[in-house]
Design a protein around this nucleic acid. Sequence first.
RNA 1: CGGGGCAUGGCGCAGUCUGGUAGCGCAUCUGCUUUGGGAGCAGAGGGUCGGCGGUUCGAAUCCGUCUGCCCCGACCA
Length: 572
Amino acid sequence: MRLSCLPLTTFKEVPAEAEVISHQLMLRAGLLRRLASGLFTWMPIGLRVLRKVEQVVREEMDRAGALELLMPAVQPAELWQETGRWDVYGNLLLRMRDRHEREFCFGPTHEEVITDIARRELKSYKQLPVNYYQIQTKFRDEIRPRFGLMRAREFLMKDAYSFHLDQASLNATYEAMAEAYARIFTRLGLGFRPVEADSGEIGGARSQEFHVLAESGEDAIAYCDADQFAANVEMAAALPPDTPRPAAGAAMERVSTPDTRSIADVAGFLGIPAEQCLKTLIVDAEDGGLIALVLRGDHELNTVKATALPGVSSPLSMASPERIQAALSCPPGFIGPVDLSVPVIADHSAAALADFACGANAVDWHLQGVNWGRDLPEPTTADLRNVVAGDPSPAGDGQLAIARGIEVGHIFQLGDKYSRSMQATVLDQAGKDVPMLMGCYGIGVSRIVAAAIEQNHDEHGIIWPEPMAPFQVILIELNPKKSAEVTAAAQAMYESLVTAGIDVLLDDRNARPGVKFADADLLGIPHRLTLGDRGLKAGAIEYRARRTGNEENIELNDVVKFLQTKVLAGAN
RNA sequence: CGGGGCAUGGCGCAGUCUGGUAGCGCAUCUGCUUUGGGAGCAGAGGGUCGGCGGUUCGAAUCCGUCUGCCCCGACCA
């Protein structure tokens, strides 16, 4: 492609609407334009990136034996009513009516449609397993679209759905998809991690998310390199400390602590570390009463774990200050587990403390030197907290670290949820109708593009991983108006690169060198060739790698060969 | 949906408090000079100041109302 034929407008300044770096850079580089909230136009160069990602996904899905098809974006309400999701899905579903007043939605996902296909097409166990996939535009009317492509309302997704006679077959395809996903993200040149995830409402046996690691990621991931453990922070178990509780060394003492409510205040006032304090949270109980959850001062409550506790109301709700005052005769901020009139559940780490400080259940008073078993009963213990860096790995070997990630893929086992409600059955060996088991496997194709930028950029712009770069090479022709020789040489070089099958962008615009260099950096094309009169005289062209900034001069005649080894080496 | 912020040429902003008929930088167009990291000079085009209503002799500016966009929370590829 010749840049002189492409109306490309790049910005020096960051558009005010963009908050995250990927969104900013895509707007500045002219890859993306916003139409409305959560709706974007992929401009020509941006679309090339999207297509390259799509192609890698497609190749690996094909290699894993999945079958590509394409379902309609618009879906009839009847299918969604069959599974009950027409009512459950709520406002995320964009609904519409046709001229006959029939109800439709713009598909946010395709379980219903694919299950309808499966029940019509698949009649015998002999046809199983089957794994169908598509790469298609989805629409989810997100409550709050944000961060550009990261949470757009309309987005490109690869969604796959597999059908099986039995669990063993489902497991096999699930594993095959996990491997295919790992290959996809590896081929795309992304730093990623598969993590154990909450299977949530769907209730399937297994679920894994694939996260691209980036500072700006929305999700916190706990992982351990020693034993390969990785899970969403919400999902990671915090093990009880393996060292026994120290012996009590201090006598319990009531201390006046005027106006010190927060852990930070208390720890500061008493001159002790936060991990020597207890934090007592009062939550509503299922039976209408209250329950006290006790954590170490430096730990955070994990709401997923807390909700799962017997007796705790679901969803979790913190008791109001009024209820606390009424039931305990003490405002929040001075509550503690000693002589507390409601049930106490302590986190393992909190239960392992000796000589700790906590609220005295009286305004402006705390207790110090408190010990379980002596000053108050041994508590019921449970895992209540989020894991923190340095915690032992639940998999048993090594310590956890915390990283941030962007979820770009999710695989899970659906079981018979949809096949049962939609009567998608096949005849088994015994000639009996049985509902098929299903798996489902998603990849956010457009989100990958944003995630790649979040992970790969510098102060000058994007640094595309080779396999998704819009072009492999940018050829900059310096001062085209000044020298006919340079122009001729650039054209000849461009032609020979194209002939060699190299994806090259020729910057033949009549612009100053600085503009071209800046745009090349902003666009993030991995390999840059610069042809100017200076080099031409010496019979050489300058090469520069976007990521490293390394430069070298290449003989004109060697350029194609040089790039083929360089570019192809990077692409596979 | 709750909370906060913003809306002025394509982009970034000033002007709003204290009403007097719109300005700066970038971008765009023309010419000349320049040309290895976002050039200089001279000129040009482009804005019903988000919409509607009100106050006023007069509204970007004050009042009301609606809309759009962005950020923080619960959801998700």
